[in-house]
């Protein structure tokens, strides 16, 4: 982004959800600094569910870890059960510390971004600007509903210049092979020392 670039959130309503009042106020201060038209604060995900039944918002910022309904459950509800177009609203989940069990649950919940603390206003604004500019498909499958997670591997559309052999297809179909087990997946992601 260039120094002279602008961001226009003057028409945007943001929903902030966090059970910690001080964190909620701090997040509200950041959003106010960005120049958002309106911010609505909810101290629980359940309160947010009730609010979204009555009115629309343009962006949701939610803490991952909350008692009762946590951020992950909220996003799953939003993507599967909320009315249209609310179910498509971009969601940024904000993660402090998550116990290992919660991290497992959080995979594939359907958030647009998960950002970990420490979180600077600069980074949060970059993510919002990305959401405002991106054209990311919305996927509805049996086990996942949310923005297309293959965004980095998609490449240009088929038949156009610039596609790489490794770019994925936009077409989803039924799986043709057995699912990999978790150990295989972990091995693919694990950094390994090699001798050169």
């Amino acid at each position: 982004m260039a120094k002279g670039d602008r961001v226009n959130l003057a028409h945007t309503t943001v929903l902030l959800i966090d059970d910690q009042p001080t964190s909620l106020d701090m997040l509200g201060s950041i959003v106010q600094g960005f120049g958002c038209k309106e911010q609505i604060k909810c101290a629980s995900a359940q309160a947010a569910v009730e609010l979204l039944a009555r009115r629309a918002v343009d962006l949701i910022l939610i803490d991952c870890i909350m008692p009762d309904m946590d951020g992950y459950e909220f996003v799953r509800w939003l993507r599967r059960d909320a009315p249209t177009p609310t179910r498509y609203v971009p969601v940024i989940m904000i993660l402090g510390h998550a116990s290992q069990a919660k991290v497992q649950q959080g995979r594939d919940c359907g958030a647009s971004f998960v950002v970990a603390k420490p979180l600077s206003p600069s980074l949060l604004l970059k993510r919002i600007i990305w959401l405002g500019a991106e054209d990311r498909d919305f996927v509805e499958a049996e086990h996942y509903v949310g923005p297309d997670r293959r965004v980095r591997n998609y490449g240009p559309p088929a038949g156009t210049d610039g596609r790489r052999e490794s770019d994925l297809s936009g077409e989803l179909g039924a799986a043709v092979e057995e699912n990999m087990d978790q150990d295989d997946i972990d091995m693919l992601l694990k950094p390994m020392k090699v001798s050169l």
């Binding site: 982004m1 120094k3 002279g4 670039d5 602008r6 961001v7 226009n8 959130l9 003057a10 028409h11 945007t12 120049g35 629309a56 343009d58 962006l59 177009p85 498509y88 609203v89 971009p90 604004l125 600007i129 959401l131 405002g132 500019a133 054209d135 498909d137 919305f138």
Partner: peptide, 17 residues
């Protein structure tokens, strides 16, 4: 999906980043 956030952020104006 073209979200309301995309529509609003595409409008002219706003403040410098």
């Amino acid at each position: 999906v073209h979200t309301s956030l995309q529509r609003q952020m595409a409008r002219p104006g706003g403040r410098l980043i």
